[in-house]
Design a protein around this nucleic acid. Sequence first.
DNA 1: GTGGTTTTCAACCAAATGGTTGACAACGGT
DNA 2: ACCGTTGTCAACCATTTGGTTGAAAACCAC
Lengths: 121, 121
Amino acid sequence: MDDDQLSQVFAALADPTRRDMVARLAVRDATVGELADPYDVSVQAVSKHIKVLADAGLVSQTRDAQRRPCHLEAEVFDLMTKWIERYRQQAQDRYERLDGVLAEMRGDERPTDHLQRGAAS
Amino acid sequence: MDDDQLSQVFAALADPTRRDMVARLAVRDATVGELADPYDVSVQAVSKHIKVLADAGLVSQTRDAQRRPCHLEAEVFDLMTKWIERYRQQAQDRYERLDGVLAEMRGDERPTDHLQRGAAS
DNA sequence: GTGGTTTTCAACCAAATGGTTGACAACGGT
DNA sequence: ACCGTTGTCAACCATTTGGTTGAAAACCAC
């Protein structure tokens, strides 16, 4: 289910630590230890964070001996962007249409249906 | 703190019910009751959801008698898009650079450090 | 094979989350 | 003035989340 992945992706990025990890993975791949380094938490905690990112499809892990290098997966970002863009666009359009309506009815006392919610009438 | 708002926005959109509400608010403004209608949960629960969206800055509420019409705020989407675009772009760039490297070394048997993680040796 | 490094698994804990119900505030209609 | 409607607040409950510690798996190096 795509909706479910979207939920996972948003949830994953809701955490500042995980967003920071993504930011660093955008620059270069890194092992769990390398990722854990800057933070003042246990490696286990970071490992969990990576699992969350991986489950969301934002990160993939491969093997290199004991190490598990993490790689940022760019495709998932498109999923988000698509979702956001759709509704941002609609909201924006409505806003601009309202602007047009307001300009059009300068001096008119009857609000159009765009403003119904405010119309006590 | 901008980082904090970003966390709130992502967290708010991690819930499918709230995403659906946003989708409907993108079409038209709606009261709490109207928003609650399609869902099989109490109005109180929906009221809470709206509070989360409002705290994140995604939604604003006004007054109309007993009713509290909700309005989608488009600007916050830009905050998200900006964050996402930055890292998507970097990841994309890196990916394309890798493509270039791969093309450049056609026939070479030694993988560069870009591929280390996959190299079983 | 023994030991060190890297990472994950398991159990546990405190805090946050999403839901419930009950009470009540705010308002319009009659 | 009352009643119905609309929405929020408060208390509560189950589940999830982000952290901890301890143990163990997987691997290289010696």
